[in-house]
Design a binder for these strands. Structure first.
Length: 467
DNA sequence: TAGCTCGTTGGACAA
DNA sequence: TTTGTCCAACGAGCT
């Protein structure tokens, strides 16, 4: 039988994988991962984490009697090469929805079809594909809550079981993953970060099970507390498709029906992820331009000022901000409340452009997702799809008092000024570049910007913005 | 169509 | 210490 090429992208899983199931039905399967310019363009931490995802998925395929073929180059050229080498007449993949992937995939599909290749794409990265959700007047949702109300009662197909994969008689040649150097840009931080990631389908399933079993029933409260292990931490796995959103969704609803009502908030968070992709699909400019009109002239700083540098390096002198920035540098993730605080601080107190923050997060987050990252930053900055009043400026001091009363979170991540700093706080100094010239013995810095002054400056600018 | 209601996550200040 | 109120205004989404 002629083999089928399954083009692997952000779907490192065997279960609930529609493209893989379709491929298995059609013949022997050649799973193929391509390191193309989209992958090459990832930030340091996402690229490293992607490489680990590839490695673990290759192992899983091997255990299932298959392989993962690795090739580097332009996606279409590689696919054409492998089609030619193997005699495959079918190429399948699971759809992505960010503008760059869509543009690539649309072109690849059309060209392969012109070549006479049967190219097919499938759903799976989202539960609700953007064109299947409409307002009653036929538009797309620009506000979350109405979309949530629209989709919350919808049927989501039950996850597909992992299929039996048959191998082709001959395998095409494959690159060695190590030769790609996907983790190279991480430099010193790599070894530290590596201890915090949780890679692969089996790990993701365990994580989901543990969350539903032990933590989801207190999710509403605990998810707001950065020093409490109250969240699912599944964003890292969802972004690489090591678990499908539908799998999480169904686990959430089972919990709701078992009386764990907080699980509905978890399902809601899954829909936030969908919402971000809907916006990226319908308004692709959300990725790199102000989503709302009239913000292009807003006087945000766009330079790497000393204050911006202090923000990146976790030495603004504001404990909540610094703790969160260090958490991200060390672990590749940041608690959601931290994300709101540091984003509000950068865009409002420091009056600096959200794209600076977006780019830094893109370099540091192992759960980096193009749609969620853009939406989150624009929401914080005020230029995004939300009607947040302009005067809503998070106060990182009162926030810390409210959500980290015991001071645990700050202590976990800030070593300076502590007699016996925690291991986590010290690990930051193993991860950061030496040229940052920071030491746990330093004095903790004074605030780089007076909070009251920063707030007033931001309020003035927001109040007086011109359209 | 016009009108109505509402908007993930807050802060400051007065009583 | 806690609670209530105001901070403005606009556009989304629905009826």
């Amino acid at each position: 039988m002629t083999p089928v090429i399954y083009w692997v992208r952000r779907d490192f899983r065997l279960s609930d994988n529609a493209a893989l199931v379709a491929a298995c039905k059609a013949g022997p399967v050649i799973p193929l991962f391509i390191c193309d310019d989209i992958v090459e363009g990832h930030g340091a931490a996402p690229k490293f984490r992607l490489g680990e995802g590839v490695r673990v998925f290759a192992d899983a395929l091997k255990a299932a009697g298959s392989r993962l073929v690795l090739r580097r180059g332009d996606a279409l050229s590689v696919l054409r090469d492998v089609v030619r080498e193997t005699g495959a007449v079918t190429v399948v993949w699971n759809r992505l929805y960010d503008p760059a992937s869509k543009a690539r995939d649309t072109f690849v599909k059309a060209t392969l079809k012109d070549d006479g290749v049967d190219a097919q794409s499938f759903a799976g990265h989202l539960m609700f594909e953007p064109w299947t959700v409409e307002t009653k007047t036929g538009g797309f949702y620009k506000v979350f809550t109405p979309m949530w109300k629209m989709v919350r009662g919808r049927d989501v197909a039950q996850p597909l079981p992992a299929p039996k994969i048959s191998a082709p008689q001959d395998w095409p040649v494959s690159d060695n993953l190590g030769d790609w150097g996907l983790g190279d840009a991480m430099r010193r931080g790599r070894d530290v970060l590596a201890t915090h990631i949780c890679v692969g389908e089996a790990a993701a399933q365990d994580r989901l099970g543990d969350f539903i079993e032990n933590r989801v029933h207190r999710y509403d409260t605990n998810r707001d507390l950065p020093s409490v292990d109250g969240t699912s931490r599944l964003s890292e796995n969802l972004t690489y498709g090591e678990i499908s959103p539908a799998t999480c969704w169904h686990a959430g609803w089972v919990a709701i029906h078992a009386g764990k009502s907080d699980a509905e908030t978890f399902c809601k968070e899954l829909v936030w992820r969908e919402f971000a992709y809907h916006l990226a699909h319908h308004t692709p400019h959300i990725i790199d331009s102000n989503w709302k009109d009239g913000w292009d002239n807003f006087p945000w700083n766009t330079e790497d000022t000393p204050e911006v540098l202090a923000w990146k390096q976790g030495r603004t002198g504001i404990p909540f901000v610094d703790a969160a920035m260090r958490e991200m540098y060390v672990t590749g993730t940041m608690h959601n409340r931290g994300r709101m605080i540091v984003a509000s601080y950068l865009t409002k107190h420091l009056m600096s452009h959200w794209k600076i923050g977006q780019a830094w997060f893109e370099d540091c987050l192992t759960d980096w997702d193009p749609a969620s990252n853009a939406m989150g930053w624009q929401w914080s900055a005020g230029s995004g799809p939300d009607a947040t009043p302009y005067f809503r400026v998070f106060n990182p001091v009162t926030q810390l008092d409210k959500f980290d009363r015991s001071g645990n979170y700050a202590r976990t991540w800030i070593a300076e000024g502590q007699g016996t700093p925690s291991d986590t706080a010290l690990s930051y100094f193993d991860a950061i570049p030496k040229r940052w010239n920071m030491s746990p013995q330093d004095r903790y810095p004074q605030p780089v910007v007076d909070l009251a002054h920063g707030r007033e400056r931001a309020l003035d600018a927001y109040k007086n913005r011109t359209f």
